[in-house]
Nucleic acid binder design. Structure first.
Lengths: 219, 219
DNA sequence: ACGGAAAAAGACAGATATGATTGTCTTTTT
DNA sequence: AAAAAGACAATCATATCTGTCTTTTTCCGT
């Protein structure tokens, strides 16, 4: 996609418009739906083609719209990517919170839950963006704060769910360990660096690790 | 770079030529040197710009050559990438073998050694290629066998170094665990998903893990 | 029903990467 | 020394993506 450095020109009609009275009109609803369609198409393209080959014509085609329609809603590719990133970020957080609201909490549920998250397209798309951001300053400036926020909320969520860990020196380690192993496995599977057969033993080993790091079993 | 599907046309002058008597002529030496320069430049570009933005003009410029010269030696971008991949692969294996030849072997040396490997540009470049290969069948067909070979040799090397692990059910787990954690951390650091401060605790924890998985301390 | 704004489609120009071709100079071969 | 081959440079033609602009269609509000 290659984010073009956001130019200041053309006052961008959309933000300038008063959102208040537009909110509930029928057209606004339709517009919101179309925007959602475009964002979904963007995520699908990220998974199918990768970030570099996700072009505006492909997104438009994937969404079943013309490029003109796309431009009407997003003005340029950067805006679309930005919206997609925000959407992905919120989806990741939503899914995480939903999982946290389930009645049964075992420490190792975190492993299962997060692992399932990582199997979904959203993570693949996110990783595509993260890798691209390494060499794309614009993209990085959008992504970095969201990554920080995610890690922070991830930890906050886990801490809230399992208060017995509070103040444990092992907490940060357990979190980093979980994220590193699970995300590392997810990436390795996608990029062919790892054998599928090793997944289950790794998951079980990680669960054991977390249990043995838990304050209840070690002080 | 976007590998173009290798067309069968034009019988590719290079492989057809008898390499035997060309080996020591001045031109052959010059050519080999130029090819090496181009391959190095390709790897540097992969690190600097990422796979997608690694274009033939950029590689030529990085190598201080004209694009024509590049085409002369590699015919098209695919051939260049292919050569770079092979070079990277062999470099990874060489570095690994070199480390294995050192006199002192402790099991946890494997962690230190491999971690140092992962800090080098070669791994960044390799990961760029691995990610790109997910959505590029041509690239994948080149990369996959090499990834398999690397994993195989990695394991063989480790097994040869530490024969006491032979036949241990934990061996595969320890290998996968090491690769997943170390590579996962390296990627996370590059893509901003992880805090540098967590690296050392993770390394030490991994070493502990490996020791407790070792047959000598557990049967 | 009708005027008009939003939505959608389509056309156009600039930029860039790629493949292919041609030309020149140097080195090797005979 | 002449001929052949290789190394390298420069240029052209094509394709595609991007951003911008213009035109058509849809449909809401009075």
């Amino acid at each position: 996609m290659a984010l073009s450095r956001t130019r200041a020109a053309r006052p961008a009609p959309r933000p300038a418009r008063p959102a208040a009275d537009r909110t509930r009109t029928l057209q606004a609803a339709k517009a919101a739906q179309t925007r959602a369609r475009l964002i979904d198409a963007t995520v699908r393209c990220l998974v199918k083609y990768g970030y570099a080959q996700t072009t505006t014509p492909k997104v438009a085609e994937e969404a079943g719209l013309s490029r003109g329609a796309m431009v009407h809603h997003f003005e340029n590719g950067s805006a679309l990517i930005k919206a997609a990133i925000t959407e992905l970020h919120e989806k990741r957080l939503r899914a995480f919170r939903r999982a946290a609201d389930r009645p049964e909490h075992e420490v190792t549920d975190l492993v299962e839950t997060y692992w399932r998250q990582l199997q979904k397209p959203a993570f693949i798309a996110f990783h595509e963006l993260a890798v691209a951001a390494r060499t794309d300053a614009d993209l990085a400036s959008i992504l970095s704060p969201l990554q920080d926020e995610f890690r922070e909320k991830f930890n906050a969520q886990a801490e809230a769910l399992f208060p017995e860990w509070l103040g444990s020196k092992n907490f940060a380690l357990a979190m980093t360990l979980s994220q590193t192993i699970l995300e590392g496995m997810a990436i390795s599977l996608q990029t062919g660096g790892m054998d599928q057969a090793q997944v289950d033993p790794m998951l079980r080993h990680l669960e054991q690790q977390i249990l043995s790091l838990a304050p209840s079993s070690k002080g």
